[in-house]
Design a protein around this nucleic acid. Sequence first.
DNA 1: GGCGGAAATC
DNA 2: GATTTCCGCC
Length: 509
Amino acid sequence: MKAGCSVAEKPGGGGGYQFPDWAYKTESSPGSRQIQLWHFILELLQKEEFRHVIAWQQGEYGEFVIKDPDEVARLWGRRKCKPQMNYDKLSRALRYYYNKRILHKTKGKRFTYKFNFNKLVMPNYPFINIRSSGVVPQSAPPVPTASSRFHFPPLDPHSPPSDVQPGRFSASSLAASGQESSNGADRKGELPELEDSSAADWRRGVDLLSSRSAIAGGLGHQKRKPDIMLPLFSRPGVYPDPHSPFAVSPLPGRGGVLNVPISPALSLTPTIFSYSPSPGLSPFTSSSCFSFNPEEMKRYLHSQACSVFNYHLSPRTFPRYPGLMVPPLQCQTHPEESAQFSIKLQPPPAGRKNRERAESSEPSGPGTAPATAPVPPRIKVEPASDKDPESLRPSGREEERFREEGAVPSRTTEEEKGTVFARPAAPVWPPGPASSPSAEALEVTDDSEDRPGREPGAPEKKEDALMPPKLRLKRRWNGAPGAREPSKSGRVLWSGPGPRGLATAAADA
DNA sequence: GGCGGAAATC
DNA sequence: GATTTCCGCC
């Protein structure tokens, strides 16, 4: 099928959308016009005609099953003009996403993977309204509050410009997710929380962000790519799969649909979920829309957020949305782990080599110095600094893994993960004034994946509760026996804000 | 099946 | 940089 293998494979005049160049590349692959695999996977998932080949998994948001690996591989190979493509190769590519935290494997389920929409989606939707019911670290992810507070600007190419301006939004996204080093510390303070749930509020948030972006824009403007709004969400309800994170919105009309202008100008991550239909699959062009079910996304995102908090996931998954508020004590943990959760030590990622090394040379005890490095503290404390936490891996993979491990009996490093990382608990949002508290709480807690029942987190002092979780971690960390300077050996990854972030966090506290 | 290193490719 | 290809290992 060489015919369809031109590099860009844009639908061009073929009756599909004409997508801007950036739709074919991500931040991390500037210049590449090739669709990325995850993008392609989403495409397939979006299409009912491929349901028999790949489909969203029931019960798990973002989880999908490759029902016909060979076919998926074939399609992918076709798309990429790699006739020799097979599932083995494709899966290798998918595995590379583990590190990027775009995907992770659902253990115990064949051909089942799960998108990390926290990673993919969040950076793109910093406008999601967050209710303040606690103090949250700067790096906290945008987590929906008790009620449906996803406020998606109506996307209509023909809508009046006064509504939502793509450019503005994009800039907002950028401002919210990028520029950390330049103004990340200030952002929190200068931006009032986006509260509650009206379109006006949403707009206000956009305005706020956008005004800030004017500042940020001055700094990173050159990098910015053109902000373009695509008509990707022009058709609410296209997605028929109730298990899709992009399921049909229950809300009538466009109001409930995630009409999000997609912008490449997202510096936070190379894996931004700037989904656009891939032009290579011609049948796709007819329904190139994603609609989000706000409720489901809310639950999913909240669970993700709690996971991140409970497990110290990389702050990278937490774009800095000033308005984001996550009730720190609401994320539950296992009863057995809640007591010791405050600060956890995490061994380095146990890649095969590490595992082998550990097994052979260091049967036990952190006291023994590894052969290679002088007593690298086997601690993972993630940085919330401006630096890309990803670069601080090897924690990344581990982060992905432990979440899975929580659910599945695990492998070699289970002792590390099993104890260090228990499953995140069912998040319970505080009742929001504008919502129905009880219903919401129930709704949230019934979320599946990372939420086993549990007792409320260990009670904390009010001041602690008001303190950004990361700062709390810092305090505990500092007070913890054997606490070390985060910077030593470079292997200690501080999960709280970086030095700078800490300062600001402290200031905020 | 799944993982991940390594080198090659585009 | 994002795969693709190959491969050994579990």
